[in-house]
Design a protein around this nucleic acid. Structure first.
Lengths: 142, 142
DNA sequence: TGACGTAGTACGTGTCGCGAACTACTTTGA
DNA sequence: TCAAAGTAGTTCGCGACACGTACTACGTCA
C-alpha cells in the first residue's frame, strides 16, 4: 500500500528508459525492434511454442503470430511442428538468428558496462543484487 | 571497454522491462501508451516546443507531430504559438491532461512502491542513489 | 463420436516511428 | 535591405506492431 518516494520512482523510470534505449540502439544496427530482440533472447535458450512466447512477452497470441512471421521472413527464426501436438509449433533460432543474438547480447553487455562504468565492483554487485531481487520477487540478502 | 557481467545485464534488462510494464499497465487504464505517458510527464513541468520534445523522447520531429496531435485530439495537451518565434509552438497540459498526469504519477508511484516493497529504507535509498547516478552520468557518493 | 477446449492464423483497425518533401518564419551576410 | 540559408513544424506514404474477432485444425474427455 506504500507509495515509493518520488526520487525512487524517478530513478527507476529514468533507468528503465536508459536501458530500453540501449536495447533499441543495439537493435537498430540490425533493424530489430526491442521486441524482436526480446524474442530472440527468449527463443535462444528455450524450446517454446507461440502461446508460451506470448506469456513471456506479455503479448496477445495474434501479436506473436505477426512478430514471428516477420522474424521468420528475415531468416532469424523458424517454425517447426511439434512432434507431440499437431496443433502446436516450436519457434527456434536459425544459425543466422543465433549469430545475431550472440552479437546483440555482446553489444548490450558492452553498453551496460559503459552505463555502469562509474560504479566500482562492490557497487555494481550491490546494484545487481538489488535489481535481481526486485525482479524475482525474493528478498535481497543483506 | 569493459563488458558488464551477465548477471548485471540480466538484472538491469529485466528490471527495465518490469518498470516498462508498470508504465504500460497504468497507461492502459486510460488507453495511453508509454510514450504518451512520457509526453505528459515531460510537458508537466517544462515550457517546451516540438523539437526539444523530440530530443527528450528520442523521436523524430515528424513522430512528435503525430504524438502531440493524437494527445491534443483527446484533449490532454494543447498547442499554443510561441510569442517569441513565429515558427515555434509550445505544448502545454490542459486541465484534463494535468489531472491524468497527477493520477498516473500517483499510480506509478504506488506500483513502484509495491515493486520495491521488499526493500527496507536503506536498501531503497541505496538503489535510488545507484540508479540515479547511472542516469545522471555522475559518480555515486559512497 | 460429439462437445468442448486449445494452438495458431487471418483480417481489419489504430498507434507509432521514420524519411522525404513541403510551408512558413527567422537569421545571416554582402 | 534583401536574397540565401537555416530552423520549426506539418504532411504523406510506408512498414512495424498490437489488439480483438473470427476462423481452422487438432486434442481430450465423456
Amino acid at each position: 500500500m506504500s507509495t515509493a518516494p518520488d526520487a525512487t520512482v524517478d530513478a527507476l523510470v529514468q533507468l528503465s528508459f536508459a536501458v530500453q534505449r540501449i536495447l533499441a540502439t543495439v537493435g537498430a544496427e540490425r533493424e530489430l525492434s526491442v521486441v524482436q530482440m526480446r524474442l530472440l533472447g527468449i527463443v535462444r535458450d528455450r524450446r517454446i511454442g507461440m502461446a508460451e512466447l506470448g506469456l513471456h512477452l506479455g503479448l496477445d497470441k495474434s501479436s506473436v503470430t505477426g512478430l514471428v512471421t516477420r522474424a521468420e521472413r528475415r531468416g532469424l527464426v523458424q517454425r517447426s511442428p511439434s512432434p507431440d501436438d499437431g496443433r502446436a509449433v516450436h519457434v527456434t533460432l536459425t544459425p543466422l538468428g543465433r549469430d545475431w543474438t550472440e552479437q546483440g547480447a555482446a553489444e548490450v553487455g558492452a553498453a551496460i558496462g559503459e552505463l555502469t562504468a562509474r560504479l566500482d565492483a562492490d557497487q555494481r554487485a550491490l546494484l545487481t543484487s538489488l535489481a535481481a531481487s526486485l525482479v524475482s520477487g525474493r528478498a535481497t540478502p543483506r
